[in-house]
Design a protein around this nucleic acid. Structure first.
Lengths: 153, 153
DNA sequence: GGGACTTGCCGAACGAAATTCGGCGCGTGC
DNA sequence: GCACGCGCCGAATTTCGTTCGGCAAGTCCC
C-alpha cells in the first residue's frame, strides 16, 4: 500500500470506468503494471467493488430522509432481523446500526413527502420491536471519496 | 425508462466494471443496443458516475461514526461554509444536511476511537457556528442498491 | 386504410483496449 | 560478491468498445 496504490484507489473512486491505459498514464506507469496492481488491490480486499451512482431525482425518488429508530429488546436476533427487514424495503438506501440514543439510522428515498409518512406508518409503527422513531428530511447529501490512510490527518 | 433501463441501472450498480457484452448477454439484447442505452442513461443524468468502493478497514480507518451537529445561525452562508469545511476534512465520508433536531449529520471514518474524540475537540468544538454536537459509533453499515422507481412499493 | 416517417434494434467491421508472458533491473540476504 | 526474488516493463494475442448501414415496427398524417 504505497503512494501508487493510494493514487489508484483515489482515481478509481473518481471514475471506476476509465480505461486501464488512462489510469496508467495518469500514474506514470506501464498499463500491465497498473493492471496487476489494481487486481492486487481487489484481491487484498482494498477495492471491494465497482458501482454506478444514480440520480435519485431521475429515478423518480427525489425526497430523501434519515429515519432514527429505537428498537427493543436489543438482542442480536432482533437487531439482525430488523436490519434484514430494512434491507428488504425498496425505499431504503443505507442502514446504519449505531450506538447512542438511537439504534438504527435508515437512509431512505421516496417519490414524495407523503410517501415518507406512509412508509413510517405502514412499515415501522406496526412492528413490535420498534419503540420509537423520528424522521429528518435531507436537504442536501454530499458523498466524498476516501482520500487515503489519514497519514497527515 | 423501461424495464431494460431499470435492469441496466441495477446491473451497473451491482458491478459497474462488467463488460458491455456481458451486460448485453444478461439483458438479452445486442451489445450495440446495450451500449447506446447505457450512454443515453448517462446523458440523461440517470447514471451520474462510476465509483470504486473500498474497504475502510483495509485502508486503516475501521472506526466509523455519525456526528450530529447543530449550528447557528441557520443562514445560507453559514450552512454552505460549514458544509464546505466538512468536505475538506479527510475523515469525512458523507455529509447530510437535514431538517429536524439536528442540522448536519456527518459520516466519518477514523483509525481509532480516540481519533473520534480528537476530531470532535480539534475540528468541531472550536468553530463558532457549532452550538452542539453528538457522536454515535457505527456498528454496522449496509449500503443497498437503488432498485427502481418504486412502482410496486 | 395506406404510405412515409421516426424510432429502436441488430450484426458485421474497425479500431482500441485488456490480458498474457518472457525478460530485465534492482534490492536483499546469504 | 553472488544468487535469489520481487516488481516493472513492452510486445503479442485476444477480447472488447464503438461505429455504421440496414431492417422491422409503430405512428402520424393524409
Amino acid at each position: 500500500m504505497d503512494d501508487i496504490d493510494s493514487a489508484i484507489v483515489r482515481e478509481l473512486q473518481r471514475d471506476a470506468r476509465q480505461t486501464n491505459r488512462d489510469l496508467a498514464r495518469t500514474l506514470g506507469i506501464a498499463p500491465s503494471t497498473c493492471l496487476e496492481r489494481v487486481r492486487a488491490l481487489c484481491q487484498r480486499g482494498v477495492i471491494t467493488g465497482y458501482r454506478a451512482t444514480v440520480d435519485l431525482r431521475a429515478l423518480g425518488r427525489p425526497v430523501q430522509a434519515l429515519l432514527s429508530v429505537r428498537i427493543r429488546p436489543m438482542s442480536r436476533e432482533v437487531i439482525e432481523g430488523f436490519k434484514a427487514y430494512l434491507i428488504g424495503l425498496p425505499e431504503v438506501l443505507n442502514v446504519y446500526v449505531v450506538a447512542g440514543g438511537d439504534d438504527f439510522l435508515v437512509h431512505v428515498a421516496v417519490p414524495e413527502v407523503d410517501d415518507l409518512h406512509s412508509l413510517l406508518m405502514d412499515r415501522f409503527s406496526g412492528r413490535r420491536e420498534v419503540v420509537d422513531f423520528r424522521s429528518s428530511v435531507i436537504y442536501q447529501h454530499v458523498t466524498k471519496d476516501v482520500v487515503g490512510p489519514l497519514v497527515a490527518g
